[in-house]
């Protein structure tokens, strides 16, 4: 318990460095634009995702799920996804099903609870990895173009690109504000258990408080951004059909895209074939 607490309190401000986070997010967004996955047409990938992101929910067949899981694992590897994202994936799967398993045991369940939970875990894992492949593997621009082709609101696709543009700046600013607290603040000593709890509370409080300056600083930025957007015709484009057409004319489906779909389909068919055998 104490060990966990100390690890936790260290992780928030000290070990968990903003630089690391920033580089991981950027790496995830832009560091893998030369992979097989990134070169695929975003529309094809979204269709592909719709299959692997939805179908596993409906299927309870173990060998089919296992097959799908293996496939999305391969595509995830192909997409060169950043380590942090994979770590989050693992954490996410555990938090969704692992704790449920523990709770089931606590309420008097037995080993019979394991198979349904295993199925559930496979489902969650497959769906998560499919989304990791598509959303981390594609660069944000292509992704937002793909979404737009399917008629997603223009504001969403703008938001995606803008978020990637802003994130490094926001993080730097947040980092500097936190640094101000670190340089000028006086954190409680954290040698004892009580001290560690207080240190943890202190850190959480600091993160909360740091949003006060951050809100004001970001407000200043947004004003320039929105004025500049106005000058650069953002609102004009949002209601103009030709602009959308021009934007989307850059998307082209190649043989590689179809091949990717066909190979995935072949694999799925094989899985179904296997599941009917056993």
């Amino acid at each position: 318990m104490e060990h966990m607490m100390s690890k936790l309190s260290e992780s928030i401000l000290d070990k968990f460095s903003m630089d690391f986070l920033r580089s991981q997010v950027l790496k995830n967004a832009y560091g893998n634009d030369d992979t097989v996955i990134a070169a695929l047409d975003p529309r094809i990938l979204i269709v592909w995702y719709l299959f692997f992101g939805v179908v596993p929910w409906f299927v309870n067949d173990l060998s089919f799920l296992l097959g799908c899981f293996l496939l999305v694992m391969v595509t995830t590897l192909l997409a060169h996804v950043a380590g942090l994202v994979l770590f989050l994936f693992a954490l996410g799967v555990f938090s969704q099903t692992g704790y449920l398993f523990l709770a089931t045991l606590l309420f008097g369940g037995d080993a019979s609870a394991i198979p349904p939970l295993l199925v559930l875990t496979l489902k969650v894992a497959t769906i998560s990895l499919a989304s990791v492949t598509v959303f981390s593997g594609l660069d944000p621009d292509r992704l937002s173009n793909g979404l737009m082709w399917y008629g997603c609101p223009e504001r969403l696709s703008f938001s995606i690109c803008y978020a990637y543009r802003m994130l490094p700046m926001l993080m730097e600013e947040f980092q500097n504000v936190l640094l101000s607290y670190r340089l000028r603040g006086n954190p409680p000593a954290h040698d004892t258990l009580w001290g560690k709890v207080r240190y943890l509370i202190y850190q959480v409080k600091i993160i909360m408080e740091s949003f006060y300056p951050l809100m004001l600083n970001t407000a200043k930025r947004s004003r320039t951004t929105v004025e500049a957007l106005e000058l650069r015709g953002y609102r004009y484009a949002a209601v103009n059909k030709t602009v959308k057409k021009i934007k989307l004319s850059a998307l082209k489906v190649s043989y590689n895209d179809l091949l990717f779909l066909a190979l995935s389909a072949l694999w799925v068919a094989l899985c179904i074939f296997c599941s009917t055998l056993f």
């Binding site: 621009d141 803008y162 543009r165 700046m169 930025r221 320039t224 951004t225 957007l229 650069r232 004009y236």
Partner: peptide, 21 residues
């Protein structure tokens, strides 16, 4: 820097032209 809204260079330079079709 708040005036630049696109992630890559060419993208940002041509953003206004794209918006004005």
């Amino acid at each position: 820097e708040n005036q630049i809204v696109r992630p890559t260079v060419l993208d940002d330079a041509s953003y206004a032209c794209l918006n004005y079709a």
